[in-house]
């Protein structure tokens, strides 16, 4: 029996576009691996529409063997919402970074969340605008040195990091699923992504997962420091866990009944 030397790719990945275009050590690949495995496990490859934003996330425009739309910067949530409304049988995933989601695209996310649109938003938070060279993003942490904050982010002048899932959970109605995972705990992140898609498939409401992810190129970190940053430092400001879970709520209601 021959053993394949290649690590297994999710079935829904598009082999023709591999190796992918992300930098070595980038978090996108692992987040997209989780997503690919979830698509396989749920058997929804024929129903998924994948929308990616501008920034590094756009490099995923031909990542999957699923219909994919690369949109304008910050416009992925509205585009996916439109596709979902036009064809509710499709499962729409809006994929973006923290710059696209929390700065230029925040209007789209906030209003889609407030309307409890039945789409899934998967937002990769790496604390910088990575494609353009590591400028300060909404999620840059206080004191973190980046290209446009060479002395570290000054919270007095530029505010504190955006708390995305906390905001989304505050403005969504019943049925929304909101969580923050991390590539430092892939099993957990994958389970969140899976629930966010199941939640959409059940038509419960808006589904949102933020994934803490690495960007060694712009953090200017070696492997050890990169891992330490995503595993130890980021959770100081970005608390990992489920913020809103209709599945749990349902269970509780049944127990109390």
């Amino acid at each position: 029996m021959s053993v394949s030397p290649q690590p297994t790719m999710p079935k829904s990945w598009r082999v023709e576009s591999k190796p992918h275009k992300f930098c070595p050590g980038c978090g996108h690949g692992l987040v997209l691996k989780c997503l690919g495995e979830v698509i396989d496990e749920l058997g929804i490859q024929d129903r998924v529409v994948f929308g990616c934003d501008i920034g590094c996330s756009l490099l995923s425009w031909d990542f999957f063997n699923v219909d994919s739309v690369q949109t304008h910067h910050g416009r992925t949530t509205p585009v996916m919402t439109g596709i979902k409304r036009a064809n509710p049988d499709l499962i729409c995933i809006a994929y973006m970074g923290d710059g696209g989601g929390y700065a230029i695209g925040v209007g789209g996310i906030v209003n889609a969340a407030a309307r409890n649109e039945k789409v899934t938003v998967l937002l990769v938070n790496n604390t910088v605008y990575a494609m353009t060279g590591g400028q300060m993003s909404p999620c840059t942490m206080p004191g973190q040195k980046v290209e446009t904050a060479p002395y570290g982010r000054d919270a007095e002048a530029t505010g504190m990091p955006t708390q995305g899932p906390e905001m989304i959970s505050a403005i969504t109605g019943d049925g929304a699923y909101v969580a923050r995972g991390s590539m430092a705990n892939l099993k957990q992140l994958k389970s969140y992504i899976k629930k966010s898609l199941q939640n959409q498939m059940e038509g419960n409401g808006f589904s949102f997962v933020e994934a803490l992810a690495t960007c060694p190129t712009n953090w200017r970190t070696n492997a050890e420091k990169t891992w330490e940053f995503v595993e130890k430092q980021m959770p100081q400001y970005f608390k990992v866990g489920e913020k809103k879970n209709p599945f749990e709520a349902k269970k509780e209601a049944q127990q109390n009944a």
Binding site: Q45, F64, N65, V66, D67, V69, I83, N87, D89
Partner: peptide
């Protein structure tokens, strides 16, 4: 004509619709 969600599984029965506005 639908741009996305045509019948069949992309990569199996048909090519996926890949729409982009950024070029390398």
């Amino acid at each position: 004509e639908a741009y996305v969600g045509k019948p069949g599984t992309p990569g199996v029965d048909r090519e996926p619709g890949l729409y982009r506005n950024t070029y390398n």
